[in-house]
Each structure stands twice: as structure tokens, then as C-alpha cells.
């Protein structure tokens, strides 16, 4: 399969990206690792006139410690993140999520910014980043703005990114001391996409859950926080029974999608199972000890 014909540009910096976007408008599409865009182009689901490679723009690479947490350049690959122990130490749950994204070859090319801009409803990364209170930086030549990740993703493959904007970075927040994180996923075995994935970041103090961030992916049109579960967890004793109980409200008010891999009822079931596993694992990693 070949993509439809296009012109290829690789500007040397962020300013060059703005120029290319200004020149070609909505006929232009930014490409990073291409692990999502190229398959769509090969299927002719995307047929841009101009493909603008962000690979030359060094401004989009790197990781920076911030007051809030870690700012990660949009062009950072999953593989680079996996090999960044200091970032992983600050962001509980991220390492485990990265490990189960696609496969090692895809992780070597796929980027953080690409995954978020693509907004695949079954992608893993948005779930853990939602649980880490992430926001995205969107830059155009004229302006810059920051959006909470939950406001940035607006639907199936849909975001608030404008035609003249570049997603330059994502900032994930370091949770308070005493936090642990986990990501539990049930995947489609060939594509490795999530039939259901749940990320949990819990802060536990003296045996009580003080703060909970729980988010899901793969179940509905877009990844989102599970506020029912978060409410059930906050203030609850961090013992296995209470943690498991919180998962029973996971699918309240949620209408899971169905496809040939998993009908809605199955996804509903997976959501509860994955939530239970993720919150229990996150609590254990936050330092909770209980006898089997």
C-alpha cells in the first residue's frame, strides 16, 4: 500500500513549521514518527497535499523539570522516555504504560506529541497522562496557549488543535509524595491497541487514600477520567476490599463502544476488572502493604 501523492517538507526549526503551515493551510499535515499517520495515509483515510516533518525542529525534543512536574517535548519518542529514568521516577505509572504501547519497533518511532494530536480513542498514553494531570502546549506564530489534556481531546481522532498550531510539548504533573501509579490494559493481540486500559495514580497517607486520579481509554469515544471511581477512592481506607469496591462504580453512566473485537458488555466488564487491578497496583506502589 502506498499513500496518495504528497509533497514532503522538513523545515529545520519550529519557525519553518509555522511557515509551512501558513503556506499550505489545511492541506498540510504534520508528521512526527508517523506510526499512526502513515497507516491512515496508506489506507487513504488521510490524504494530505503536503506532509511536514517535524523531525528537523530540535525545539520539540527534550525533557525539562518544571515546578509542576516534567515538560516533555512533543517529538520525544516512547523509547526515549523509557530510557529516561529521572522522568519515570517523577511520574508514577508512566513506565508501565510505555512498556505496553504497541511494540518495541513502534515505540522507537512513535512520539508523545504525535499520539496526543492523533487522539486515537484506544491509545494508551492519554490515559496515564490524564491521571498525571497533564496539559499540552500549543504554539502558533502569533500565539501560544496551554490546555488541560482533558480539554484538548474532543472526540474520536479529534482535538482542539488549529490548522496553524503545533503541539510543542506536554507537561505532566508530579503527584504528591506517597503516590503510586499503574496502568492495566486488555489489548487486541495483533494491533496491541487497548480494548480497555485504566491508569491510576493514588496518593496514600497513613493507610487512607488522600488523592486519586483514575482515567480510562479504549472504552468510549475518547479517553477520560473516571470521576466516580476517584470520588469513591478519596478518603477511603487503602485496603484490598475497599479499593476493589471502588471499581464497581467504574462503568456507571458510561456507554461503552462495541466493535468486532469486543462488544459493549465485554468492554464494560473489562473496565471494572482493569480499574480494580490498576487501583490496587497503584496503592501497593504507593507503599500500602497488606497480607495477601
Amino acid at each position: 500500500m502506498y499513500p496518495a501523492e504528497f509533497a514532503y517538507l522538513r523545515p529545520p526549526d519550529l519557525d519553518g513549521l509555522y511557515t509551512a503551515l501558513a503556506q499550505h493551510g489545511d492541506g498540510a499535515k504534520l508528521i512526527a514518527g508517523g506510526q499512526s499517520l502513515l497507516p491512515m495515509m496508506k489506507l487513504r483515510l488521510a490524504t494530505p497535499d503536503v506532509v511536514v516533518d517535524i523531525g528537523g525542529a530540535r525545539e520539540l525534543r527534550g525533557q525539562w523539570r518544571t515546578e509542576q512536574g516534567v515538560r516533555i517535548g512533543a517529538a520525544t519518542t516512547y523509547r526515549e522516555l523509557q530510557r529516561s529514568p529521572r522522568t519515570l521516577a517523577l511520574l508514577p505509572g508512566l513506565a508501565g504504560a510505555l512498556e505496553v504501547i504497541a511494540d518495541q519497533q513502534v515505540r522507537a518511532r512513535g512520539t508523545v506529541g504525535g499520539a496526543l494530536a492523533h487522539a486515537d480513542p484506544t491509545a494508551d498514553l492519554p490515559a496515564i497522562l490524564l491521571a498525571l494531570d497533564a496539559s499540552v502546549d500549543l504554539h502558533s506564530r502569533q500565539a501560544e496557549r496551554r490546555l488541560a489534556l482533558s480539554d484538548f481531546i474532543t472526540g474520536v481522532f479529534a482535538t482542539d488543535l488549529r490548522d496553524d498550531e503545533v503541539l510543542t510539548a506536554v507537561e505532566a504533573s508530579e503527584p504528591p509524595e506517597g503516590s503510586g501509579g499503574a496502568y492495566t490494559k486488555f489489548e487486541q493481540p495483533a494491533s496491541h491497541f487497548a480494548l480497555c486500559g485504566v491508569a491510576a495514580v493514588l496518593t496514600v497517607e497513613a493507610g487512607t487514600v488522600r488523592r486519586a486520579r483514575v482515567a480510562m481509554t479504549g472504552v468510549t469515544a475518547m479517553p477520560s477520567r473516571l470521576s466516580n471511581v476517584e470520588r469513591a477512592l478519596t478518603g477511603c481506607r487503602a485496603d484490598p476490599a475497599a479499593l476493589s469496591e471502588s471499581a464497581t462504580v467504574a462503568s456507571e453512566g458510561i456507554e461503552p463502544l462495541g466493535d468486532l473485537h469486543a462488544p459493549p458488555e465485554y468492554r464494560r466488564h473489562l473496565l471494572e476488572v482493569a480499574t480494580r487491578d490498576a487501583v490496587r497496583t497503584a496503592a501497593a506502589r504507593a507503599g500500602v502493604r497488606w497480607s495477601a
Binding site: 514532503y8 508517523g34 519497533q105
Partner: peptide, 15 residues
């Protein structure tokens, strides 16, 4: 590619 395994059906030669 530069010493790292990738899937060459999902990378442009130009890249």
C-alpha cells in the same frame, strides 16, 4: 535506523 529496530513499512524513505 541509526542502530534502532523500526518497521520500514511505516516510515517514509524521506524520513
Amino acid at each position: 535506523v541509526d542502530g534502532v529496530a523500526v518497521k520500514s513499512c511505516t516510515m517514509l524513505a524521506a524520513q
